[in-house]
Every structure is written in structure tokens, then in C-alpha cells.
Computed example of a mutant assay.
Amino acid sequence: MTLEGLDDLDRAILGALQRDARHTSSGEIAERMDVSASTVRKRIQRLESEGIITGYHATVDYERAGYPLYMVLICTAPIPERERLADEALTVAGVVDVREIATGTENVLVTVVAADAEELTDSARRLVELGLTIGEEELIRGDRSTPFDGFVSDAADAADRTESAESSDTP
């Protein structure tokens, strides 16, 4: 399913779950969108089965959890091996995130957390053993993210979006 296949209810569900999946019930979403909770549950199941919702994750403050070193290793992988190496990098102790980059020679970003420099060195050594070349190491001071704002959050946002679309269609 593509974005064109998502309706306002799908977008509201995605927006609500991105903001706080743990404390958002299908009943709350249903009430805001004026549909039944069972409709929301069915939509969530469909979004999961179609691979649009791929999981639910806790956000961890690694420093408070005893892992003060939070680094991004900027790596290079041969193009034919990039996907395989990115997948294998996830098996290395301390690796919490791997991103494939579609352009440039530095085409794999690996995020590693560690309690100390020795753990970080061990993770980096293992990544090199897999076949990645580490070009740069960046110590992360802070990390912030926000849910994608392209999903409506409730019926009011859906109505605003509809009104906006209708008013832009008029000559």
C-alpha cells in the first residue's frame, strides 16, 4: 500500500501511534475519529500485515542506562554487499541502528552504544571483520526525533485537511 492508499483514518492511526503507541488505545483513536474501536483495531492489523507499521519501540536514554558512549560510525560497504553487511551489522554487540545510504561512498551509518571505550572498540573491530570500512566516528551528544507530521492526528486535523484541499481546488 502506498501513501495514496491511506485514508484519513489510517493517517490518524499512524500519527497517534507514532506520538505514543504505549499510551494510545484503539478506543481513544476511535473516539477522536468518530468510528468504532473494532474498526481501528482492524485497520491497525491491516497496517501491520501490509508492512506499513513495522514495530513498536521503546526510546531509551542510553547514558542514563549506563551506556554513555553513543556514536555513529560512518562506514563504506561495497555496493553489491551493502544490504547484507547492513543486516549483519545488526548482530554486533552494541549496535542499535543501521542505515543504508543510497548515494556516495560512505553508504552505511552504524549507531553503537557502549559503556566504555573498550566496548566501543570491540564493536568497531567486529564491524571491520564483517567487511565494513569505518571512515569516521562521530560521538553523539543528543538525539531528538519527532513523528512525521504528514499523518493527521484526529478528526479535527482530518477536517482541516479536507477543507484545505477543497479550498485549494476552487478557482
Rank of each mutant, 00 (worst) to 15 (best):
I79C: 02
A155E: 06
I53R: 00
Q45I: 03
S38K: 03
E48T: 00
A16I: 01
I13N: 05
A155V: 04
P171C: 12
L17A: 01
G135Y: 03
E106Q: 15
R82N: 02
A21V: 02
D7E: 09
A58S: 14
I134R: 01
A12L: 03
A16H: 04
T39H: 08
E163Y: 04
T103F: 13
G150T: 02
Y62F: 15
E81H: 10
R161D: 12
T146Y: 06
L47G: 13
G5Q: 14
A124P: 01
Y56R: 03
R19I: 06
E100Y: 01
R41H: 01
A165R: 12
P78Q: 06
G142Y: 09
V72A: 13
I52M: 08
R43G: 13
A93S: 12
L3M: 05
S49Q: 11
V95D: 05
G51D: 10
A65F: 11
A37C: 04
G135M: 04
G94W: 03
P80N: 03
R126K: 14
S36R: 05
D149R: 12
M33F: 14
Q18N: 05
R84C: 01
G135F: 02
V96T: 14
L85M: 07
L73G: 00
R125T: 09
T39C: 09
D157N: 06
A86M: 01
I53N: 00
D34Q: 11
V113Y: 06
D20T: 02
V72R: 13
D87S: 15
A86L: 02
L120H: 08
D143K: 11
P78S: 05
L139V: 12
G51F: 08
G131A: 06
A93K: 11
E63F: 11
R99I: 12
A89E: 01
A16W: 01
V60L: 12
V128Q: 12
F148N: 10
E63Q: 07
S167M: 13
E28H: 04
I44V: 15
S164L: 11
A156K: 10
T24Y: 03
T170Q: 11
V72E: 13
T162E: 12
D122K: 04
S123A: 15
R32Y: 05
S36H: 07
R161K: 08
M1P: 14
D116S: 02
A93W: 06
T54V: 15
T111V: 14
E4C: 01
R43P: 09
R99G: 05
Y62M: 11
D169Y: 05
